[in-house]
């Protein structure tokens, strides 16, 4: 079976799904189930105090016994905030060490601050975290993050939540050529074909949230993404034919035609 391994655990699904922006927890759960995702991202936030004591909890809907939860540092703009958030997440999830690190550099674009990301990654790896790291599609930064000991490199395809698809497949190709740990496209996928393209490039997986949650029918889009990732993966494994501009070759036999070809007809 075609599985991939992150931090020593093997997974059959290569779709990693975020849990933000759904209508309610019921829709979140249905989308997760339709996607087949085994790794689910969650954010860490202050709880309401003094009110809403009966409020449902995301971890009751997506229990850690059924899914690999990947706490993130969304909204953190400094290495210190990201590290602090993930220490709390580890306590919340009973010592769970697999995390998604992102340190943002700009509120308008949500581009990563790669220097702060590297600083945070060094601390977290030293503290025993298994770090899946959101980064730009810069191959040198990707290599540095791998050298630090990150468990997976997760370059953006385009801006978080933009749905613009894979804007620079060439950089992703260079990253894929160099990096030995899993490479997962994180951010920018808009529809099923974008996810398929990421997988056809040879990525190990795709992490997405908005493309599913903001679809008109999130559960159906989750299902479409599952198929796209499986199709893209199989196409990668199968090995596509080379592209041949101006080298048309018929798929059917040239012999035994009942009519002459235009070329020989013109010569007669």
């Amino acid at each position: 079976m075609d599985t991939f391994v992150i931090a020593g655990k093997s997974y059959s699904s290569r779709l990693l799904l975020g849990t933000g922006k759904y209508k309610d927890f019921a829709e979140t759960r249905m989308a997760v189930d339709a996607s087949g995702a085994q790794i689910i991202t969650v954010a860490i936030r202050r709880t309401n105090i003094g009110q809403n004591s009966g409020e449902p909890n995301l971890l009751d809907v997506l229990p850690p016994s059924q899914f690999t939860l990947l706490p993130n540092t969304a909204g953190c703009y400094t290495a210190a905030d990201a590290v602090r958030t993930l220490r709390l997440a580890r306590e919340l999830l009973d010592g769970h060490a697999l995390v998604k690190l992102e340190v943002l550099g700009d509120q308008k674009t949500l581009f990563p601050d790669v220097i702060a990301t590297i600083d945070a990654a060094k601390i977290l790896v030293k503290e025993g975290f298994q770090v899946m790291v959101y980064t730009s599609d810069d191959p040198i930064v990707a290599r540095q993050l791998e050298d630090i000991g990150c468990a997976a490199i997760m370059p953006l395809a385009s801006l978080i939540g933009s749905g613009m698809g894979i804007l620079n497949p060439w950089n992703l190709q260079i990253i894929l050529d160099k990096i030995k740990v899993p490479v997962i496209v994180d951010a920018g996928v808009g529809t099923a074909s974008d996810a398929a393209i990421a997988m056809e490039l040879g990525c190990d997986g795709v992490l997405m949230n908005t493309a599913v949650a903001n679809a008109r029918n999130p559960v159906l889009m989750a299902s479409a993404m599952r198929k796209a990732i499986e199709a893209g993966r199989e196409a990668w494994l199968a090995g596509r034919m080379p592209k041949k501009i101006y080298q048309a070759t018929p798929s059917s036999p040239s012999e035994g035609m009942i009519t002459q070809s235009p070329h020989s007809a013109a010569n007669n």
């Binding site: 975020g18 969650v42 202050r46 709880t47």
Partner: peptide, 10 residues
Amino acid sequence: LEIIVAVGGG
């Protein structure tokens, strides 16, 4: 004191 929970996020 900071008291935190897991919430939906990507």
